[in-house]
Simulated assay, not measured.
Amino acid sequence: MSKTAVKICGLQSVEVLKSMINLPVDYIGFVFAKSRRQVTSKQAAELSGVLKQWKSEEIPRSVGVFVNPSLKELGEVLQSVELDVVQLHGQESPQFCREVKESFPVSIFKAVSIQAGRPPEEHVNELMLYSGCIDGLLLDTYDPVYGGGSGKTFAWDIIPIYRDWARAQGFPLFVAGGLEPSNLDRLLALYDPDGVDVSSGVESAPGVKDIEKVIAFVERVKL
């Protein structure tokens, strides 16, 4: 089985999540930021409860996706929902990431938006400030409205620079942005990310997860 981790993001339906309980999924993402896939704390608590019924060897880790939250906002969510990971998808500073780690018993994934024309070496130098503050790095395609979640790919040839830096820091690199079963083979074969993150690529309509597409995606990675 592939060592590459699978993260299915933007779950809203208890029924769809229950239909996934035999799949080898590593992370399930709940979006608390403004989005077509946004959930309330009450919805997320119900969804996270489903994870305890998982049939695969390990229960997926629950991930809360936030954009520029306050510590107060995170605290209110975490009082209601057991999250394993907080994914910060905005312009959160290294200091803020450190405060989150010190305040709550969660891992921190920092998402960064990849913009065309920006030298990756320059970007990685800036990311050095996050060393010791985060537990995972996620690359996503820049979207001017939501920051990420565009459903579009970025130029994958820059991945190795970020991947090698993340591994040198001792944490995984996830790739998001426009992933779907049809382009996974190329990504995995050529760029070897530690994890892949999908949302719109396994939907039948905006925000509506399609279990057949989810199965196809997971099988492409894991089998």
Rank of each mutant, 00 (worst) to 15 (best):
F32R: 02
E102A: 15
G29A: 09
L71H: 01
V65Y: 01
L74Q: 06
V67H: 01
K101W: 00
V77E: 00
E15P: 03
E46M: 09
G64M: 11
K72A: 11
S56A: 15
T40N: 06
L47V: 04
T40K: 05
E58G: 02
Q38W: 06
V25N: 10
V16Y: 04
C97L: 10
S62Y: 07
Q38R: 15
I59C: 13
N68K: 01
E102D: 15
S48Q: 15
F96A: 01
K42M: 13
R37H: 07
S80M: 13
I59F: 07
S70T: 15
V31G: 03
L23K: 01
V85D: 13
Q91V: 04
L47H: 02
N68F: 01
E58C: 09
V25G: 08
L47W: 01
F32A: 05
A33F: 08
S70G: 08
R37V: 07
Y27P: 11
S56M: 06
D84P: 02
V81M: 04
R61M: 14
I28F: 03
E73S: 10
V39S: 03
E76V: 08
N22L: 13
F96R: 05
E57C: 08
K34H: 12
Q53V: 05
Q43A: 10
K52S: 15
C97P: 03
S35K: 10
G29E: 05
F66K: 00
V16E: 12
G90A: 11
N68Q: 10
E58R: 14
E82F: 05
K18D: 08
I28R: 04
A44P: 04
E57G: 07
V81T: 06
H89K: 04
Q79F: 03
L71N: 06
G75N: 09
L78T: 11
K34C: 08
V100A: 05
F30R: 02
Q38D: 04
Q53Y: 11
F96W: 04
P24L: 10
V65K: 05
W54L: 06
K55F: 07
K72S: 07
S80A: 15
D84H: 13
F66D: 00
I21R: 15
A33N: 06
P60R: 04
E46F: 03
G64I: 11
F96P: 01
L71R: 02
K42F: 11
M20V: 11
V67E: 03
A45S: 15
E82W: 07
E57T: 14
Q91I: 12
A45I: 03
E102N: 15
E57V: 10
R61S: 15
D84R: 01
V25A: 03
K42V: 11
I21S: 13
G29C: 04
E73H: 14
F30V: 02
M20W: 13
